[in-house]
Amino acid sequence: ELVLALYDYQEKSPREVTMKKGDILTLLNSTNKDWWKVEVNDRQGFVPASYVKKLD
């Protein structure tokens, strides 16, 4: 499943990933309501769920 980055996000820990507004990311896990695991540029990590939106 793919998600769209709604905002820029700068990683604050090694478990997170940086994304730019408009990026298309692969959603790996959305079981946590606050932090979703995504893959971007061959890196996996977490981003705030409120910063991304699922693409239909």
Rank of each mutant, 00 (worst) to 15 (best):
E1K: 12
N29P: 03
R43Y: 04
V17L: 14
L2D: 04
W35E: 04
I24T: 06
K12R: 14
T31H: 11
R43P: 00
K20H: 12
Q44P: 06
D23R: 03
L6P: 00
E16Q: 10
L27Q: 01
L55V: 11
D34M: 13
E11H: 09
K12N: 10
E1N: 13
D42I: 06
E16R: 04
D34S: 10
G45F: 09
V3A: 12
L28H: 06
V38T: 01
S13H: 13
K37Y: 15
G22H: 05
G22Y: 05
W35P: 00
S13Q: 08
T18H: 05
G22F: 05
W35I: 03
L2W: 13
L55C: 12
S30Q: 10
Q10T: 15
L25V: 06
V52G: 01
L25N: 00
E16I: 04
A5I: 03
V52Q: 01
G22A: 03
V47C: 03
S30H: 09
R43W: 05
A49K: 07
W35Y: 06
K20M: 09
P14F: 09
D56K: 11
V17C: 09
D23V: 05
G45Q: 01
K54S: 08
M19G: 00
K20C: 12
Y51V: 08
R43Q: 08
Y9A: 00
K20Y: 10
N41F: 13
K37W: 14
S13D: 11
T26C: 13
T31S: 15
I24G: 01
L28C: 07
K21A: 12
V17R: 02
T18I: 03
K54W: 08
S30T: 10
L6R: 05
D34R: 11
G22W: 06
T18W: 04
Y7M: 12
A5E: 01
Y7D: 08
K33T: 11
R43V: 08
K21H: 06
V17A: 05
N41A: 13
L4Y: 11
V40K: 15
T18P: 07
W35H: 03
S13V: 05
K12P: 04
L25D: 00
Q10S: 11
G45A: 03
G22C: 11
V47G: 01
F46D: 04
E11A: 15
L4N: 02
T18K: 04
V3K: 00
V17E: 01
K53V: 15
D8K: 02
W35S: 02
F46E: 04
I24H: 05
K12F: 06
V40P: 00
V47I: 09
V38M: 02
T26W: 14
A5M: 02
T26M: 14
T31W: 09
D56Q: 11
L6G: 02
P14N: 12
F46P: 00
D8V: 02
N41Q: 14
K20R: 14
G45Y: 04
D23A: 08
V47P: 01
E39Y: 07
K33G: 10
Q44E: 10
E39Q: 14
M19R: 00
G45H: 02
K37S: 07
V47M: 00
N32S: 10
N41T: 09
K20I: 09
K33P: 14
V40Q: 15
V52D: 02
V38I: 07
D8C: 05
Y51R: 08
L25I: 06
V17N: 04
E1M: 14
Q44F: 07
